[in-house]
């Protein structure tokens, strides 16, 4: 079976001229995505280090402020993201096997779960606005912690906002992959676009795996 016959797009269109083989191209693409993700690790690492320093300075205020977050919504969102990572991993699997219909369905499921996550995040943000937990002149909190709780909520909005921004980019990447899967560009030989999109999606899941306990779980009991 020649590569030309397996796809709507001929092999020459997916193999860039400077690579000897699709295999070399696939390894280079994966490596490139990992190098990008390493820069992202350090980007979020710096933000989390800042959070940890402030939490070390103001443990009581951070625990009290953390207690205001909705643990049910936070846990639900964690489960949604982990499930979306499963559907993404299965989408990569379908792409590697050249199963186009399955690939489209799994990419769609991943995108829906991602959208559900963002929907819940919007509900949470709306609560913050009605409860006066948005840093700024209208900020309201128990008088003893008001200044430092404001620092917590600043960190909360920066960290979850950056994460949500990455989710939005991820949804764009998924839409792009769905177009390529739809028009037959993704094949058994040329699954690497879906593979590296998967790497990005899983990375965004990992960021949430750290944000969830740090933001939602630290203030659950009086001893925190």
């Amino acid at each position: 079976m020649s590569p030309e016959s397996t796809a709507g797009v001929p092999r020459a269109h997916v193999l860039a001229h400077h690579f000897e083989s699709l295999e070399a191209q696939q390894q280079a693409a994966t490596l490139g995505m990992w190098i990008f993700l390493v820069t992202e690790v350090l980007f979020f690492g710096g933000a989390l280090a800042a959070y940890a320093v402030y939490r070390g300075w103001y443990p009581e205020a951070f625990a009290a402020a953390s207690h205001e977050l909705d643990i049910v919504l936070g846990t639900t969102n964690t489960a949604i993201l982990i499930t979306s990572s499963l559907t993404m991993a299965l989408a990569v699997h379908a792409a590697q096997l050249g199963a186009r219909t399955k690939l489209l369905a799994l990419l769609g499921a991943t995108a829906l779960l991602g959208a559900a996550f963002l929907g819940i995040k919007i509900v949470e943000y709306a609560h913050k606005f009605t409860e006066g937990h948005v840093p700024g002149p209208g900020f309201m909190f128990a008088a003893e912690h008001v200044a430092h709780a404001q620092v917590f909520f600043s960190m909360y909005f920066v960290l979850t906002g950056l994460h949500a921004l990455h989710m939005v980019v991820g949804l764009g990447v998924l839409a792009w992959m769905m177009v390529w899967a739809w028009n037959g560009r993704i094949t058994r030989e040329y699954a690497s676009p879906v593979e590296i999109s998967g790497l990005y999606w899983h990375f965004v899941d990992i960021v949430w795996i750290f944000l969830f306990p740090l933001l939602y779980l630290i203030g659950r009991h009086p001893g925190a």
């Binding site: 994966t30 990992w34 390493v38 690790v41 350090l42 990572s85 993404m88 998967g198 899983h202 990375f203």
Partner: peptide, 26 residues
């Protein structure tokens, strides 16, 4: 997630080295 969903366990040594290097800087 890194080992299985992101295939690090099955990746070439060069990719694994980049991941380890990133963690070292973190």
């Amino acid at each position: 997630v890194v080992l299985f969903f992101m295939h690090a366990k099955y990746s070439p040594r060069l990719t694994q080295l980049v991941i380890a290097g990133g963690l070292l800087w973190l």
